[in-house]
């Protein structure tokens, strides 16, 4: 789908592109949130989007599954452009899990009920099938003992882990994380990042908007730095964190107190 500058050896192929952003622009009145973003996410990759607040990274993430409309440009998922047809958009959303900054668990459902919601209403699973799937996922995020708890009786970190399980219950091909640890108490950030790390190790394709530089450094395959609605630098984490090429990246990292 794209021309690579480097000539690759025969028989070696990069994994296929799952998400492609082509010249994505978003404007709110006078304010330019995204000023033409081009980016590729390949299968199995963990891509971390970093940059100052308001630099457009969350907006780009929300454009991925159509929660935000673009002013112009295209997003391709598995080669299909994101459509204006709501039915096609829903089909694409089913294949992308999303985790929000404020968890957005359904307060009127238990942890188990939250996870069962998608499979039952969207995939048409029976209650029993959905329950089996939900129980397995709760175990996976280490919360089997909280199945009957309502979100009001879960800590922030636990809520976010349930939210990850809820997204996984749709068996998505891609997981989108929108600042998943920004609303958490420092002591519960680790448990959420651990779950995400394990997910990455299992080969899940992930796009993560984050301020957790240690996580990006350790887990990401590809790091993308945003400023003022544009990508100012992208590359493997070693490049971004150890040998940033642009002053914008250096400024941002030093502002965070990052010293490699």
């Amino acid at each position: 789908m794209t021309d690579t500058l480097v000539k690759l050896p025969q028989g070696f192929a990069l994994p296929e592109v799952v998400i492609e952003y082509r010249d994505v622009r978003k404007q709110y009145g006078e304010f330019v949130a995204l000023a033409g973003v081009n980016l590729e996410v390949r299968r199995g990759q963990v891509v971390c989007l970093i940059g100052p607040s308001g630099s457009g990274k969350s907006t780009l993430l929300r454009c991925t599954n159509g929660l935000e409309t673009m002013t112009s440009g295209e997003v391709y998922f598995d080669g299909m452009p994101l459509s204006k047809d709501p039915r096609k958009t829903r089909l694409i959303r089913q294949r992308m899990g999303m985790v929000f900054q404020n968890f957005e668990l359904f307060p009127h459902k238990t942890a188990l009920g939250n996870i069962m919601m998608g499979p039952m209403t969207v995939l048409g699973l029976s209650e029993e099938q959905a329950r089996t799937r939900a129980e397995a996922l709760l175990a996976k995020v280490g919360l089997s003992d909280k199945a009957g708890n309502y979100p009001a009786n879960l800590s922030g970190g636990q809520q976010q882990r349930v939210a990850i399980a809820r997204a996984l219950a749709m068996e998505p091909e891609v997981m989108l994380f929108d600042e998943p640890t920004s609303a958490l108490d420092p002591e519960t950030i680790g448990e959420v990042l651990n779950v995400m790390k394990r997910l990455a190790d299992d080969g899940m394709t992930m796009v993560v908007v984050t301020h957790e530089m240690t996580f990006a450094r350790r887990v990401a395959d590809h790091v993308v730095v945003f400023a003022n609605g544009q990508i100012v630098e992208q590359g493997p984490p070693e490049q971004i964190f150890d040998a940033p090429k642009t002053t914008r990246t250096r400024d941002f990292l030093s502002h965070l107190g990052w010293d490699g």
């Binding site: 709501p86 959303r93 992308m96 998608g118 209403t121």
Partner: peptide, 14 residues
């Protein structure tokens, strides 16, 4: 909260 609607949309609900 509008976030609740977004959570449903993200699951692919109508």
């Amino acid at each position: 909260r509008p976030g609740q609607v977004r959570a449903g949309m993200a699951l692919g609900m109508t």
